[in-house]
């Protein structure tokens, strides 16, 4: 029996972001942008969606004079990612 895949994670960029964050304690916006090869605008929108769902925590601050946005996965996000993987297994 196929399990339903979390629609929030079953999208290319959001899944890429979560896959990166699951293995890291934290990552900044530039790192995510480079690794996912996405545009700033699109990345921003997807990060906000994940943050609104409580899957990631976003912190905005400064490094010297430069603005810096860092992201980390929340326990809820980790659980959602694990559930997504479990659901994915049912398709194979």
């Amino acid at each position: 029996m196929f399990k339903e895949l979390d629609p929030l994670l079953h999208s290319q960029l959001r899944l890429a972001i979560m896959s990166l964050l699951i293995s890291l304690a934290q990552a900044d916006f530039v790192f995510l942008k480079e690794k996912t090869n996405s545009t700033s605008g699109n990345l921003s929108v997807q990060l906000d969606k994940l943050s609104e769902a409580g899957y990631i925590k976003i912190e905005k601050g400064y490094k010297g004079k430069k603005p810096r946005t860092t992201c980390q996965i929340t326990p809820l996000g980790r659980k959602a990612f694990e559930n997504y993987l479990e659901a994915l297994k049912t398709y194979f």
């Binding site: 079953h10 999208s11 960029l13 890429a16 896959s19 293995s23 090869n37």
Partner: peptide, 20 residues
């Protein structure tokens, strides 16, 4: 990378690539 829907196979490949 755009916001597109993935097949299950593509999902697995993407997760594996990002973790690497």
């Amino acid at each position: 990378m755009e916001e597109k829907k993935l097949t299950q196979q593509e999902s697995l490949e993407l997760i594996s690539k990002m973790i690497k």
